[in-house]
Simulated assay, not measured.
Amino acid sequence: MRKPRLRRWEASEYLALVHGITIASTTLAKKASVGGGPAFNKGENRTPLYPVEELDRWALKRLGKLVHSTSEFGE
Rank of each mutant, 00 (worst) to 15 (best):
46 R>C: 10
9 W>T: 12
24 A>V: 02
36 G>L: 02
66 L>N: 04
38 P>L: 03
66 L>Q: 11
64 G>N: 03
61 K>F: 07
28 L>C: 03
9 W>I: 12
2 R>P: 15
36 G>N: 05
5 R>P: 00
20 G>C: 15
51 P>T: 07
73 F>P: 00
74 G>Y: 10
3 K>C: 03
35 G>C: 08
33 S>W: 04
53 E>V: 13
29 A>S: 08
38 P>K: 08
30 K>N: 12
33 S>F: 06
62 R>H: 10
10 E>W: 04
3 K>A: 10
29 A>I: 01
64 G>E: 01
52 V>R: 12
17 L>P: 02
13 E>N: 12
46 R>Q: 14
71 S>F: 00
50 Y>L: 13
43 G>S: 09
5 R>M: 07
6 L>T: 05
55 L>F: 08
64 G>W: 00
40 F>Q: 07
55 L>N: 06
32 A>D: 15
53 E>R: 14
7 R>M: 11
74 G>R: 05
35 G>S: 09
41 N>S: 11
9 W>Q: 13
45 N>Q: 13
7 R>D: 03
49 L>P: 02
71 S>E: 15
53 E>K: 09
23 I>T: 04
58 W>D: 01
43 G>T: 05
18 V>H: 12
59 A>E: 04
61 K>I: 09
67 V>D: 00
36 G>Y: 03
3 K>F: 07
54 E>W: 12
12 S>F: 05
38 P>G: 03
3 K>P: 01
24 A>I: 01
50 Y>N: 15
57 R>M: 06
30 K>V: 10
51 P>R: 08
52 V>F: 02
39 A>M: 03
3 K>Q: 13
1 M>W: 08
32 A>T: 09
19 H>M: 06
44 E>V: 10
48 P>A: 10
72 E>C: 00
56 D>K: 02
19 H>D: 06
21 I>T: 04
60 L>I: 04
3 K>T: 07
15 L>W: 06
25 S>K: 11
72 E>T: 00
40 F>L: 07
69 S>A: 01
57 R>T: 06
50 Y>S: 11
49 L>Y: 08
44 E>Q: 15
60 L>G: 01
49 L>D: 04
9 W>H: 14
60 L>E: 09
11 A>L: 07
